[in-house]
């Protein structure tokens, strides 16, 4: 392979494949919705659809971030723990008026960015495997959070937080609007900016990226920071939706966010993926979860289906692109 061996061609052939993947997922989603509509007349009611999307929004925010980390061959298992920790932090202000909301957001984002910085530093500079680094971070955050709350749930929140999470502007849920902003902003960063190109380069071949004048360490650290910040914001919106901090806000989101991203065709081997396809993965996941409920199956069945899907989707994309 010469250095001139066509990064252009490669990216082109990959983008055709990824377009194909994207449509495959759309077809799957439509098929699921048809099944859901047939199985239960409730499904297509606007109230149910809006409900489904409202539940999906915080997960979507996490997935946007998770995509960045997976693109650089990483994985962030600390997102769920961070969401809960941010939620606890938000209640720590003991604020009952809406003036505190900007402060809460700033504090939450600052904490998240710090967490991401540590994760990224461990992975990029200390060569710790992403799995171990974020696992350790997950436990540390969990311990710190419980030590602060003593395990008891708290519910002191400015009323505006609830509005952010389940209120509507012109009939559209506020958290969906926020998710759209977040996805478009980070989508532009990823797919249209220089930084985005660097992320793809580092993900598909760190050495080549380095030789091309990209500092892989910096890019990797930045991806972890972005991931944590997205998770932190997702945590605030989820908190507003749930209303109380139970110390376990967001539990399971680490698995769900990885499932959604993988389903959306974000390759765990790095360097291949798309934020919006990953969000389609979220849609599929929440429709399946909703379907399980509408069909009257026990809620635990969601866990089983999720497990099968993540293995199946990973295998599917693997054979497709091998």
């Amino acid at each position: 392979m010469t250095p001139l061996d066509t990064p252009m061609q490669r990216s082109q052939s990959i983008s055709i494949a990824s377009v194909f993947e994207r449509y495959g997922l759309v077809i799957f989603l439509v098929a699921l919705m048809v099944v859901a509509a047939i199985a239960s007349p409730t499904f297509l009611r606007p109230a149910n659809l809006v409900n489904v999307l409202t539940i999906a929004a915080p997960l979507g925010m996490v997935v946007v971030g998770q995509t960045f980390v997976i693109l650089v061959r990483g994985l962030d298992l600390s997102v769920a723990s961070l969401m809960a920790t941010v939620a606890v932090l938000a209640t720590a202000f003991k604020a009952t008026t809406n003036e505190a909301i900007p402060m809460i957001f700033i504090a939450a984002i600052a904490l998240s960015a710090m967490v991401g910085l540590v994760n990224g530093w461990l992975v990029a500079k200390r060569n710790v495997s992403p799995f171990l680094a974020t696992l350790a971070m997950m436990i540390i955050l969990q311990g710190a959070r419980f030590a602060y709350t003593g395990g008891a749930p708290i519910s002191t929140l400015p009323p505006g937080m609830g509005f952010l999470a389940s209120g509507r502007v012109l009939g559209i849920p506020v958290n969906l609007i926020t998710l759209a902003f977040l996805a478009i902003a980070f989508g532009i960063v990823l797919h249209r900016s220089r930084l985005g190109r660097e992320i793809f380069m580092v993900g598909s071949n760190p050495k080549a990226a380095f030789l091309n004048g990209v500092a892989p360490d910096r890019v990797v650290i930045l991806c972890y920071v972005i991931c944590s910040v997205c998770a932190g914001i997702g945590g605030l919106f989820l908190l507003g939706y749930v209303g109380t901090v139970s110390n376990w806000v967001g539990q399971g989101y680490e698995l769900d966010s990885i499932v959604a991203a993988v389903m959306g065709g974000v390759a765990l081997s790095g360097g291949r993926g798309n934020v919006f396809a990953a969000l389609l993965g979220v849609a599929v996941l929440v429709v399946i979860n909703n379907l399980v409920l509408l069909l009257g199956f026990p809620i635990e069945m969601q866990l089983i289906i999720k497990g099968i899907i993540i293995i199946g989707a990973a295998a599917f994309y693997r054979t497709r692109l091998a």
């Binding site: 990885i258 089983i304 999720k306 497990g307 099968i308 293995i311 990973a314 295998a315 693997r318």
Partner: peptide
């Protein structure tokens, strides 16, 4: 399936 063991066992864990 040639899927990363992390994903396989995570999925399996969820199923079990």
């Amino acid at each position: 399936l040639r899927v990363h063991p992390l994903i396989v066992t995570l999925g399996m864990s969820s199923i079990i």
